[in-house]
Amino acid sequence: MTARLRRDPAFVLAAAILGAWVAVALLAPQLAPYPSDLQLDLTRLRESAPSAAHWFGTDGVSRDVLSRLLVGARVTLLMGAIAVGTSLGLGVLWGSAAALSPLWLDRLLMRTIDACLAFPRLVLLLSVAAAFGQLPPIPLAVVLGATGWFGTARLVRAELRALAERSWVVAARALGAPEPRILRRHVLPALVGPLAVAASLALAAVVPLEAGLTFLGFGVRAPAASWGSLLAEAADRPDALWWMVLFPALALVSVVASATVVGDRLRRHFDLGDRA
């Protein structure tokens, strides 16, 4: 089984990329060519395009972008994992609770979701900032996840509702299979596909969201580096300062794409294994 995964070139490549990023995150201070918050030369090295000495160029206060990208991987990957985990966890819990509940409770739970979806997220985030000030990365990631799971909950509930009436579930139930077993064997595996998509979209959203928070004074505290804070510096000038946009964006794409491919192959692998 694992041998088959190992022969799948897409899986191997994606897993290698993810593994490499994890290694980078762990070893960043050793790998980075310069200290990530060192202002190298404020007079001559500000916003300089990539060169032999600075492969990814330098930023507005002459810090090495490559070093900041490598060191930033640590915060970003951690935040991404926590935010996505929080948002998926809450979404699945809430959505399946609604789907399995009696009608009145289902309605109450879903109307709560309506309310949460309608609430202006900007107001919510600013009031969190007002209450707690600038948060460290992990609580920040939890906040991001906790304010972004409402769509997932709705999706999960809709899926479960639809699945519950599907022929194979009905058949299993008719054969007398206990409900938890039906849920585990037949319903949950079918949820994995849409959830994987939701997860990859949520992962992709964390970095730009964090970049946006920087403008509210709510992102990662300066001078710490994260991909969002890198992007925030130049996202509105991708033409003039392309190296400050392109490299963080590429890094993000590589992580999201690899994570998606790995997730997709694993699902297919276990899905088939389960049915076989």
């Binding site: 990859s200 992709a204 991708p238 964006a249 794409v253």
Partner: peptide, 15 residues
């Protein structure tokens, strides 16, 4: 679609 979905929206729009 995977790549497009992973690029930050703001970057796509600005580009």
């Amino acid at each position: 679609t995977l790549v497009l979905a992973s690029i930050p929206d703001v970057v796509v729009a600005t580009a």
